[in-house]
Design a protein around this nucleic acid. Structure first.
Length: 111
DNA sequence: TACTTGACCGTAT
DNA sequence: CATACGGCCAAGT
């Protein structure tokens, strides 16, 4: 197991329920700035059954990365909904559910 | 070894 | 909104 892999897994596991983060943000949190593709690659290799909130990881645009309509796509939408994350047209509003966005809101107070 | 692929990203046009 | 471009890099051919 590569150290970089473990750090990425840890960063993903650290996303709180009800929130989401982008591939790039995960990479950065794992100490690997600019390596969003590595995050995507690792997620693609994680077998089913492994404990990891992969569904809380989205593109920087807020869109679900998996092909729309695919099995994984539907699964991701279902699990996000189960946590109260709103998904519209395969997309989540990062301004409302993004990890850092929520931190900023807490510091500034509710708009 | 060389080239291609891919759950990506930011900037520019 | 869509296309293009350059970065990134592990794996597979």
């Amino acid at each position: 197991m590569q150290d970089s892999h473990a750090r990425v897994y840890a960063a993903i596991a650290a996303i709180p329920p009800g929130r989401v983060a982008s591939y790039g943000a995960i990479a950065a949190r794992a100490g690997l700035p600019g390596r969003a593709r590595l995050v995507g690659k690792l997620l693609g290799e994680v077998p089913d059954g492994v404990e990891l909130p992969w569904f809380r990881v989205l593109r920087s645009s807020g869109e679900i990365a998996l092909p729309k309509g695919s099995r994984g796509f539907r699964e991701q939408v279902r699990r996000l909904h189960a946590e109260g994350v709103e998904v519209k047209n395969g997309r989540v509003a990062l301004s409302a559910f993004g990890l850092d966005a929520n931190l900023d809101r807490a510091l500034w107070g509710m708009p």
